[in-house]
Simulated scan of single mutants.
Amino acid sequence: MPTGPKAPKRPRDPNQLAKSIVDLATGETEDKKPLASARKGGLKGGKARAKTLTPEQRSEIATVAAQARWKKGD
């Protein structure tokens, strides 16, 4: 499975797919690419959140998460 940015979704209908390919080839539309900055923000989100939480809040979140994991086995 590729680890890079996902390619944009293409239409499933063969006629729409053909039109989108022609539009891309002729330059009528541009291929949309995901922004690299969005990925960077996602990578630091958890660390930034953990830094702002108090130890009591982190403990409570961890307790709820552990209970949810153990509950799944029932």
Rank of each mutant, 00 (worst) to 15 (best):
T26W: 00
T26Y: 02
T26A: 01
T26M: 02
E28K: 11
E28L: 07
E28A: 12
E28Q: 08
T29K: 10
T29F: 05
E30A: 12
D31N: 05
K32I: 10
K33H: 08
K33M: 05
K33P: 00
P34S: 01
P34H: 01
P34E: 00
P34Q: 01
P34T: 02
L35P: 00
L35H: 00
L35N: 06
A36Q: 03
A36G: 04
A36H: 00
S37E: 12
S37F: 14
S37Q: 11
A38C: 00
A38D: 11
A38F: 07
A38M: 14
A38P: 00
A38Q: 09
A38R: 10
R39L: 08
R39C: 01
R39Y: 04
R39D: 03
R39A: 05
K40D: 05
K40H: 11
K40E: 12
K40I: 09
G41M: 15
G42L: 06
G42M: 12
G42K: 12
G42E: 11
G42V: 04
G42T: 05
L43N: 13
L43C: 07
L43T: 11
K44V: 15
K44H: 14
K44G: 15
K44I: 15
K44P: 09
G45F: 15
G45D: 13
G45L: 15
G46D: 08
G46W: 01
G46K: 13
G46Q: 07
G46I: 01
K47H: 13
K47I: 08
K47L: 12
A48V: 11
A48L: 13
A48T: 14
A48F: 14
R49W: 06
R49D: 06
R49S: 10
R49P: 02
R49H: 06
A50W: 05
A50G: 10
A50C: 03
A50Q: 08
A50D: 14
A50M: 09
K51H: 04
K51T: 04
K51F: 03
T52G: 05
T52P: 00
T52L: 14
L53G: 03
L53D: 02
T54S: 15
T54R: 05
P55V: 03
P55C: 02
P55F: 03
P55N: 07
E56M: 06
Q57F: 07
Q57L: 03
R58W: 03
R58V: 14
R58P: 02
R58E: 00
R58H: 02
S59C: 07
S59M: 13
S59H: 13
E60H: 12
I61N: 02
I61C: 01
A62G: 04
T63L: 12
T63F: 15
T63A: 15
T63W: 09
V64C: 01
V64N: 05
A66H: 04
A66W: 01
A66T: 09
Q67S: 05
Q67A: 13
Q67E: 15
A68E: 08
A68D: 09
A68K: 10
A68H: 08
A68G: 01
R69C: 05
W70G: 07
K71V: 02
K71R: 06
K71F: 02
K71M: 03
K71E: 08
K72Q: 14
K72V: 10
K72C: 04
K72R: 13
K72S: 14
K72Y: 05
G73R: 05
G73Q: 08
G73P: 00
G73C: 02
D74G: 15
D74F: 10
D74N: 13
D74E: 08
D74A: 07
D74S: 13
